[in-house]
C-alpha cells in the first residue's frame, strides 16, 4: 500500500503541469463557445435586419427595407420601401446575386412592445400559482405513494397515471370548456392554474419520492430511537432533507412551467405573453414580429431563471451535508 502511495506522490509536479494544461484547454473551450454564441446572435440579428445586399454589374449596393405609410386612393396603407444605404464600386458581373433578409415591421414592434410585455405579469403569476399548487400535490402524492394503506397508495398512483396519460393541452381545455357543462365555471386563470398544477404535480411527485428515498434508513432509525413518532420523523428529519434534495429539479420544472403556461392562452381569457402576441399579431397581420417578441421574452426569462437557479444550487451544495 505505502509503495503504491509513494509511486503516486513522486511525479507530483508533472501532475500539476497536466492539470494546468487541462485548465487552459477548458478555458479556451469556454472562450470559443462564448465567441460562437455572440456570432450566432449576430447572425440571427442579421437574418431579421431587413437589409439587402445586391451585387451586380460590377457594383455592390447595401440597402434597407422598411414599411412606409403611403396614401393611395385616399386610404393610408403600408408599403414596402427600399432605401439605399451605401454603394461600392466593386461587385459581381452581370446579374450577380441579391441577398435578402427578413423584413420586420419596426413600427409595429415599437407600438406593440409594451402591450405584449404586459403579458409577462400573467405568465409569471400563473406559473407561481401553478408551481405552488403542483408542489403541494406532488408532496402529497409522494407521501401517499409511500403509504402502506392500499386506498391511499392507489389514490396516488391513479392520479399520476391519469394525468401522465393525457395531454396537458387537453387538461387545460377540460377545466375551461368541459366543466361549465357541469355548471362549474372557472375563470381562465383558475382553469389554467388547476390544470398546470395538477399536471406538474403528477410529474413532480417523482422528484419528491426520490428526495424522500434519498434520506437514508439510518436517519429514520436515529429519529425513532430518540422516541420520535413516525409523523415527527417525517416532518422534522426526512422531509427537510428531501426538500433540499428536491429544490434543483423543482427549479427546472418552474422554468418549464413558465413556458407551458403559454397553453393557457387557449382559454382566450388569460392575457399572458402568448395570448397578447397572438392577438396583436393576428389583428395587424404581423404575427412574425409579435411572436418573435414573445419568444424573446420567454427566452430572456428562461436565461434569467436558470441563472438564479444556478446560484441557488451552488449555495445549497456548499451548505450542509
Amino acid at each position: 500500500m505505502t509503495a503504491i502511495a509513494k509511486g503516486q506522490d513522486a511525479p507530483k509536479s508533472q501532475a500539476e503541469l497536466l492539470y494546468e494544461i487541462q485548465l487552459r484547454k477548458e478555458r479556451q473551450f469556454r472562450g470559443n463557445v462564448a465567441i460562437t454564441w455572440v456570432l450566432l446572435v449576430l447572425f440571427l440579428l442579421l437574418v431579421f435586419s431587413s437589409l439587402e445586399i445586391r451585387s451586380s454589374n460590377g457594383t455592390t449596393e447595401l440597402a434597407i427595407w422598411t414599411f412606409e405609410k403611403v396614401t393611395k386612393d385616399g386610404r393610408e396603407i403600408l408599403e414596402k420601401t427600399r432605401t439605399g444605404i451605401a454603394t461600392f464600386s466593386i461587385g459581381l458581373p452581370n446579374e450577380g446575386i441579391t441577398l435578402n433578409t427578413i423584413l420586420v415591421d419596426k413600427n409595429f414592434i415599437a407600438q406593440n412592445f409594451t402591450f405584449i410585455a404586459r403579458g409577462i405579469y400573467w405568465t409569471i403569476r400563473i406559473s407561481l400559482f401553478s408551481i405552488a399548487l403542483a408542489t403541494i400535490l406532488a408532496l402529497l402524492a409522494a407521501l401517499a405513494r409511500l403509504s402502506s394503506v392500499p386506498f391511499v397508495y392507489a389514490l396516488s398512483t391513479f392520479y399520476v397515471s391519469l394525468i401522465r396519460g393525457t395531454p396537458l393541452y387537453l387538461q387545460i381545455l377540460f377545466f375551461f370548456l368541459a366543466l361549465p357543462q357541469l355548471s362549474i365555471n372557472l375563470s381562465g386563470e383558475m382553469a389554467g392554474v388547476l390544470a398546470l398544477g395538477l399536471n406538474y404535480g403528477a410529474y413532480m411527485s417523482e422528484i419528491f419520492r426520490a428526495g424522500i428515498a434519498s434520506v437514508g434508513k439510518g436517519q429514520r432509525e436515529a429519529a425513532l430511537a430518540i422516541g420520535m413518532t413516525q409523523g415527527q420523523t417525517m416532518r422534522r428529519i426526512v422531509l427537510p432533507q428531501a426538500l433540499r434534495f428536491a429544490i434543483p429539479p423543482v427549479g427546472n420544472d418552474f422554468i418549464a412551467m413558465t413556458k407551458d403556461s403559454a397553453l393557457v392562452a387557449a382559454t382566450g381569457f388569460v392575457h399572458e405573453l402568448t395570448w397578447n402576441a397572438q392577438k396583436v399579431g393576428r389583428a395587424q397581420f404581423r404575427s412574425l414580429e409579435a411572436l418573435i417578441i414573445a419568444a424573446l421574452f420567454y427566452w430572456s426569462m428562461t436565461i434569467l431563471l436558470s441563472y438564479v437557479q444556478n446560484k441557488i444550487e451552488t449555495r445549497l451544495s456548499k451548505g450542509e451535508r
Partner: peptide, 16 residues
C-alpha cells in the same frame, strides 16, 4: 425508547 439511548455504527447525525 425513552428509556434507551442508541448509538449507531454510521453515527446518523441529522445533517440539516
Amino acid at each position: 425508547r425513552l428509556k434507551t439511548g442508541m448509538v449507531f455504527q454510521e453515527f446518523n447525525l441529522f445533517p440539516h
